[in-house]
């Protein structure tokens, strides 16, 4: 009997054991899906740590307006509320897309992903309009340290959402071309984690930048 025979039948080597695995090292190694999710979660946390540096910069420079406009004079909360609604709804439709993938229902998958893309694109358009409006009013990133920090923080989140939209289209194309294959499913898992994490950062952002900026 060769070693390949053993690895083909032993549940430990074929990964069947992973079904019974319950962490703590018992029951064999975790499935590839769980390991990929963990690795991507580490990346997301490092991304969040990077955002925390931008948040710290913004919090420190909030009052350094150099005689220019303050947040309360610039921010339009109605616009921010619409942006928030778009991103929250897109997080929900992304969740529906995850469920469609689990159920292998491609029709529902494409519908949910298209909705997610539409909501995300609306968010980006609203943000771009807000930025253009601020620059046109002479409150661009060069006006004061406060505005530099504002454009860096909010713009970095917008950049992440833009990348997420491109990734979304890539995932739709990959599911279309390659079907519900195991490696494609893992990529989709990473995409959905990314998209939900962006919404978490936006929660911190609309609270700290917009709501607390308008209030103070």
């Amino acid at each position: 009997m060769t070693t390949t025979d053993i690895s083909a039948t032993d549940p430990y080597w074929t990964g069947h054991h992973a079904q019974a695995a319950a962490g703590h090292g018992a029951g064999g190694p975790a499935s590839k899906r769980i390991i990929v999710g963990y690795g991507f979660w580490i990346f997301l946390l490092s991304d969040i740590v990077m955002f925390s540096a931008f948040f710290a910069a913004y919090a420190v420079l909030r009052d350094a307006t150099a005689g220019g406009p303050r947040g309360a004079e610039l921010f339009n909360l109605r616009n921010v509320a619409i942006e928030t609604a778009c991103l929250l709804a897109s997080s929900f439709t992304c969740g529906l897309a995850s469920l469609s993938v689990q159920a292998r229902r491609s029709g529902w998958f494409y519908a949910a992903m298209t909705l997610t893309f539409g909501l995300g694109a609306t968010f980006i358009l609203l943000e771009a309009r807000e930025f253009a409006d601020l620059v046109a009013r002479g409150a661009g990133p060069t006006r004061s340290a406060f505005l530099s920090a504002f454009f860096t923080l909010v713009g970095c989140h917008g950049l992440h959402v833009t990348c997420g939209l491109l990734w979304l289209l890539t995932m739709m194309a990959q599911i279309f071309a390659k079907g519900f294959r195991a490696d494609i499913l893992r990529r989709f898992l990473c995409f959905s984690l990314f998209w939900h994490a962006l919404d978490i950062i936006w929660v911190a952002l609309f609270t700290v930048v917009y709501l607390m900026g308008v209030h103070a």
């Binding site: 990964g15 079904q19 499935s31 899906r33 469920l99 689990q102 159920a103 195991a182 499913l185 893992r186």
Partner: peptide
């Protein structure tokens, strides 16, 4: 369904 990548309640709903 996917012998290398199955988790109960995750892969085949």
């Amino acid at each position: 369904i996917d012998e290398f990548d199955a988790v109960p309640g995750q892969e085949s709903a």
